[in-house]
């Protein structure tokens, strides 16, 4: 398998009053043209991992890695203008909640068009045409009308389709999806996921799917990384999740409720099992 992204010993550090804190601790992983899920609880460092790939961690946060190789480019070594050419065009990111991640005073069409126009010099008519095609690709009916709407005029599900359209329009090779469905109703989660899945597999992209939902990830991805406190504690194929060995993963799996089961008490995570005091 040819790797798109190869990360070795990635570390993200923030200074605090009581000394530097590593929120991501020397993690290594690689990504091919596949769907890689990163699961973990709040504060496990999964979002920071995603953002550090795009070098979006703002100072005073610091990102270091022994290697962060993207199709032969060392991402941590290139200049900021060179990084801008990578962002959006080659690695892109779908963010969590369209309510906050879409600019409230720009129309949907303008925002999607911008994602294309910053990377490709195209005449306006052609940009608009591409945007309309993209809106259709994320299954929005009446793309012509949605093009002129403002974000507050669209629903959450549609907002996230707009987000996906915006991030996929320059045809990147890697898409990072950071909790892309957590802010959506359960009823539209599936739709949005299938649209994303469809586009990602059709274009042969690599997908990093960040979520706290173990079951969603195991159903949707090919491979899973389980993060805990800035470290990868488990790495396995999605269909082999039941065979996970780390006590944290086992504990998580054990505390998932199942339909139709009768258990007197749902087990809670017992962190003392793997944490050394």
């Amino acid at each position: 398998m040819s790797d798109l992204l190869d990360v070795k010993k990635l570390r993200v550090t923030f200074p605090t009053a009581s000394g530097p804190v590593d929120v991501v601790k020397d993690i290594s992983f690689s990504l091919g043209r596949e769907r890689l899920g990163i699961v973990g609880e709040s504060g496990s460092g999964k979002t920071m991992t995603g953002r550090s790939i795009l070098r979006l961690i703002r100072p005073p946060g610091k990102v270091t890695a022994e290697r962060m190789d993207f199709e032969g480019t060392e991402l941590l070594a290139i200049s900021e203008p060179a990084m801008r050419k990578v962002r959006g065009a080659r690695i892109s990111m779908v963010m969590q909640d369209p309510k906050f991640s879409l600019n409230p005073v720009m129309t949907v069409g303008e925002q999607i068009g911008e994602a294309l126009a910053v990377h490709e010099k195209l005449p306006r008519r052609r940009v608009k045409q591409r945007v309309l095609e993209m809106l259709e690709a994320v299954q929005i009916r009446e793309p012509e009308r949605v093009f002129g709407l403002y974000p507050h005029e669209v629903s959450g599900g549609m907002g996230q389709r707009v987000m996906i359209a915006m991030m996929l329009i320059p045809e990147p090779s890697i898409l990072i999806a950071d909790e892309p469905t957590s802010a959506l109703d359960v009823s539209v989660q599936g739709e949005v996921l299938s649209i994303m899945n469809d586009l990602v597999t059709r274009k042969g992209m690599g997908l990093i799917f960040i979520s706290h939902d173990l079951h969603l990830v195991s159903a949707f991805c090919d491979r899973i990384l389980v993060m805990y406190r800035g470290e990868i504690v488990e790495e396995c194929r999605a269909d082999a999740l039941h065979a996970a060995t780390h006590p944290y993963t086992r504990g998580l799996l054990a505390s998932v409720p199942r339909l139709g089961e009768t258990r007197a008490e749902l087990p809670v995570l017992d962190r003392s099992a793997w944490e050394t005091a």
Binding site: R84, S101, E114
Partner: peptide
């Protein structure tokens, strides 16, 4: 510190436009 400013950076928008188009307009 708004998310949509990060969105603009993710898209690869140059910093000057991030500031004037995305952050200043609202």
């Amino acid at each position: 510190s708004q998310e949509y400013v990060t969105t603009a950076r993710v898209k690869g928008v140059p910093e000057r436009q991030v500031i004037w188009r995305h952050a200043f307009r609202p």
